[in-house]
Computed example of a mutant assay.
Amino acid sequence: MRLIRSRHDTRSAILGYLWCSGGSFRPDLAEGVALTEASISRIISELKAEGVIEETRRAAPYRGGPSQFITLSREIAVAAIEISNNRLYSAVGTLAGETLSSEHYDLADGLGAAQVEATVTRAVRDLAAWAMRRGITLEQLAVSIPGYDPDLRASPIVAVDVDKLDALCQREMPQTPLRMTNSMVARAVAHRLQMGTGVLGGSYFFVFVGHGVGAAIVDELAESGDVETCEIGHVVVDPGGGPCRCGHVGCLETLVSTVALADILNVEESDLLGRGDRWPDDFRIPKTARADIKTRLDRLGLAIGNALNLTRQRNVVIAGWPSALPAEERNAVLDAIGRSRLGGVQGIALTFSDASLGREPRSGLALAAFSFIRRSGERRAQGKQLISS
């Protein structure tokens, strides 16, 4: 059954498929977006003329097969501001996924509003100046903030005044569309891109365990763009526990974040983050530490199980430091989900993704590219400046 879509939706579907797949021959693209080649031919020509996609010749995948391969353009720039791991990252990249520039600025937990504002202002101005010096037009800016809530002027996690930040971006990059959102939206979007096309059908409950701990309900992003976040890291699991950066005590984050893990291992968090998936092999983990980690994984599973009591999600994907552990140690998460979820683990599919630690600002750039795609790849203005080599 072929779908009836508007021009806007068809453009978004084509770009979304190319984004997730990394490029496609026309027949595969037509099948992927559930339309005939004839139906999408005009829009492909339109997107090529606008410089949003590129078509190059490649060896046919089979004898007599197509040789024209379509990818997203390397001549369109998007930008990101991503706050994560006690830093603010700024970056410019291409729609095709190449990083052109990346800088970071220290932004420790607990900084006051004035210090945060000064750092954010410097980063945004530096980003705008970098693009201006090179004559690059930024087609989209994405800003991801831990704990961001559109109903709150400032995040309870990082003292960012979102109204001031919005005004700053408008002044420094006045014609660049801006998407400001929760950090978990950016991570969920980047994870969906990492998965590619057709890997996991339907929606899933995505949990990231890093410097912060968050969750999101991810639908078919390439079609709908839906991401519903869940502040699972700030579920209070121990009312008598330690203080959390959100202002409460005993939050899940205080037990299972990379800050907590680094403390167990007696290493610097920055060193832990830099090891990515290698951390269990690179650090000596005493027997007592392994027992402590297992207990904390149990708390993570209990929190996830309770979250699943509030949603009908049955697919659960976990990324972050637990992903690098051996399967027998990760089983503690599933066991705990079964103890807290009504009905146990029946019907639950739990998978662990790559750790994805220390890869900022990849998530921010993925969100920027995705936001451009969701507005169907409409360029800012005629006579656009392309990226110079």
Results as ranks from 00 to 15, higher is better:
N309C: 07
L310S: 15
A303D: 02
L297G: 05
R299G: 07
R330I: 10
I285C: 00
I285Q: 00
E328D: 13
I304Q: 03
A336G: 09
A336L: 09
L302H: 15
R341N: 07
L310T: 15
V333N: 02
Q346N: 13
W279D: 01
R290M: 02
L308N: 02
P280R: 03
K294D: 10
G347V: 12
N306Y: 14
L308D: 03
A307M: 05
N309Y: 04
R312G: 11
I348K: 05
E328A: 13
S323G: 06
K294L: 14
K294E: 13
G347Y: 11
W279R: 02
R296H: 06
R330A: 08
F283P: 00
I318F: 05
R296T: 01
R314K: 12
G343V: 08
L325C: 06
P280Q: 01
N315R: 14
G301E: 02
G347S: 11
N331Q: 14
G305E: 08
I318V: 15
V317E: 06
E328L: 12
L325M: 05
A324V: 04
A336P: 07
I337D: 09
A327N: 13
R314E: 10
N306F: 15
R312S: 13
W279V: 00
L350F: 08
G338W: 12
L308P: 01
G301I: 02
T311K: 12
I348A: 06
R296L: 06
Q346P: 04
A349V: 15
